[in-house]
Simulated assay, not measured.
Amino acid sequence: MCVDEFFTVARQSESLYECKKSKFISNVFPVENADEAEHLLEMVRKKHWNATHNVYAYTTGLNNEIQRFSDDGEPSGTAGRPVLEVIKANNLRNVLIVVTRYFGGILLGAGGLVRAYSESAARGIKNSGIIRKVNCNIYEIVINYDILGKLQWEFEQRNIKIFDTDYAENVKIKACIPKSSICDLEKLVLNITSGTAQMQLTGSCFIAVDM
C-alpha cells in the first residue's frame, strides 16, 4: 500500500517517571529501520547495564511492517506490549522506545506495571514531540537572480518548501512538493519564469512538515 504521509517522533528524548520508589526511564528515538533500532537498543542496555529491566518496543516501515517488543523479565504482557500499544495509539511509525526500570522495592502488580510502563512511554513521546512526514517530489531548479524573489514568494503562498539554495552564475534551488498536492510545480515554475527556468525531478523523500 502506498503511503503519502506518516507520523513519528521529532527527536530523541529521555524522561524519568517514578512510581512507588521504582524509577522508569524512557528513551525515545526516531529510527529508519530495524537495524538502527537494535543498535540504539544495545546502546541503552550498555548504559543501564545494572538496571532491573530494559523493556522495549519499536515499529519500522511505512505500514509498520516490523513490530517488536520485549518484557525483559517482567511478567508476560505487562511491559513490552503496553509500550507498543502506546506507540500504536499515537499512530506512530519508525520509533523505538526503551523503558529502563530500577526496582524500588515495592511490587506493583500486573495492573500497576502496565500503567507504569504505559505512562513512561507516553511521557517519553510527549517530550520527543510528534511530527508529520509527507512523501514529496524533489526538484532541482536553475533560474536567473532577478526572478528569485518572485519565485520564493509564490512558493511561500503555496507552502512549497525550498530546502537548499546555491548562489553561482545562476541560482540553483532544490524544492519539494507533496506528491498528493494538486499543484503542477513544473507548470507553475515555467509560468513564473516565462519559460526561462531549467528544472528536473531528481527524486523523492519523506520530509517533515508543520503540524
Rank of each mutant, 00 (worst) to 15 (best):
F69T: 02
F69A: 05
D71R: 01
E74D: 10
S76K: 11
T78I: 05
R81F: 11
V83K: 00
L84S: 06
E85T: 09
K88T: 09
A89S: 15
L92H: 07
R93E: 13
R93T: 14
R93W: 05
N94K: 07
R101L: 07
Y102P: 01
L107T: 15
G109N: 12
A110M: 14
G111I: 13
G112F: 13
V114T: 13
R115K: 15
A116R: 11
Y117H: 11
Y117W: 12
S118V: 09
S118M: 09
E119D: 15
S120T: 11
N127R: 08
S128F: 02
I130S: 06
I131V: 15
R132E: 10
V134L: 01
I138F: 09
I138V: 13
E140F: 02
I141S: 07
V142P: 01
I143N: 09
Y145N: 06
D146Y: 09
D146N: 14
I147R: 05
L148E: 15
G149V: 05
K150W: 02
K150L: 14
L151A: 04
L151C: 06
Q152W: 01
W153I: 11
E154V: 05
F155S: 01
Q157S: 03
N159S: 13
N159T: 07
K161Q: 11
K161Y: 05
K161W: 00
K161T: 10
I162W: 03
